[in-house]
């Protein structure tokens, strides 16, 4: 299914992006491309701005007064930083999964039904099908199919995170943002999520922030390396890890700093 996707044009294009927390500038003229059918990893040491960049892509930062972005982020040819761009429409296209699982305090079924019924008019049977489909895609269906009415909080951490992924993809966004989605999980749960991310790239443009070098190497096709609020280097993950152009990238991927 991915093979027919036109990879030459990026799904998300970031150009000259500056970002401010109040008066403090966290991103300096960042430019990056995120392509369909690929997982792009954003990596770098703590405080390099990788999470900040991710939080610009669905403008979740705008919840906080004092945080401000300037520059251009285009999605389907439109600049999402334009104040006139509708936030809810943007987030319908750009879903996000956070570091710590964020299940809502309601049943497993309702966690998915809430966004689904908000965005689409579905009959009860259509709703059930969509919930099942999303849970299957998130590789969670077999574990929860008999307890859809149970509280989402009764799930384990790894299951909760897959539920959050299911919830994000249920409304079929174009882009899926993952903010260190496995850093709160144990190695087995991490493996499952990584396998899942690899499958999801067929249908979504996946952007993943990770501080874990090995994870970036395992999961992504492209890598953006950031340092101190700037993009140092970006390109195919193989090349970034084996023959980086920039000496700083080389130092980072060989473990000399970060």
């Amino acid at each position: 299914m991915t093979l027919v996707v036109d990879n030459s044009k990026p799904a998300l294009r970031v150009r000259d992006l500056d970002f401010f927390y109040g008066t403090q500038q966290a991103l300096h003229a960042v430019s990056a491309d995120f392509r369909r059918g690929e997982v792009t990893a954003i990596m770098g040491p703590s405080g390099c701005g990788k999470s900040t960049l991710l939080r610009v892509l669905n403008r979740v930062y705008s919840l906080y007064p004092g945080q401000r972005a300037a520059g251009e982020v285009s999605l389907d040819g439109q600049n999402i930083l334009d104040p006139a761009y509708d936030l809810n429409a943007l987030r319908l296209k750009v879903g996000m999964v956070f570091q710590a699982p964020t299940p809502f305090v309601m049943s497993i079924f309702d966690n998915l039904a809430l966004p689904l019924t908000h965005h689409e008019a579905l009959t009860p049977s259509e709703l059930r099908d969509r919930v099942e489909a999303a849970l299957r895609r998130a590789a969670l269906w077999e574990e929860v199919k008999d307890k859809l009415k149970h509280s989402a909080l009764s799930l384990s951490g790894g299951q909760q995170q897959r539920l959050c992924i299911a919830r994000a993809i249920a409304i079929e966004p174009e882009v899926l943002l993952l903010d260190e989605p496995t850093s709160a999980l144990d190695p087995i749960a991490t493996t499952r999520i990584e396998e899942l991310i690899d499958e999801l790239r067929a249908d979504f443009t996946v952007v993943m922030v990770t501080h874990n070098l090995h994870q970036a190497a395992r999961v992504s096709q492209r890598t953006v390396f950031m340092y101190r609020g700037e993009v140092v280097e970006q390109g195919p993950t193989d090349r970034i890890f084996t023959a980086p152009d920039n000496p700083r990238t080389h130092d980072y991927v060989t473990g000399r700093f970060g």
């Binding site: 669905n58 979740v60 919840l63 936030l87 809810n88 429409a89 943007l90 987030r91 319908l92 879903g95 996000m96 956070f98 570091q99 710590a100 964020t102 809502f104 809430l114 966004p115 908000h118 965005h119 959050c164 919830r167 994000a168 409304i171 943002l177």
Partner: peptide, 17 residues
């Protein structure tokens, strides 16, 4: 937790909902 608020907004739900 703020993460729950951010997660809900990230699903394109309006603030009142």
């Amino acid at each position: 937790p703020g993460g729950m608020r951010e997660a809900a907004l990230s699903l394109g739900l309006p603030k009142w909902k």
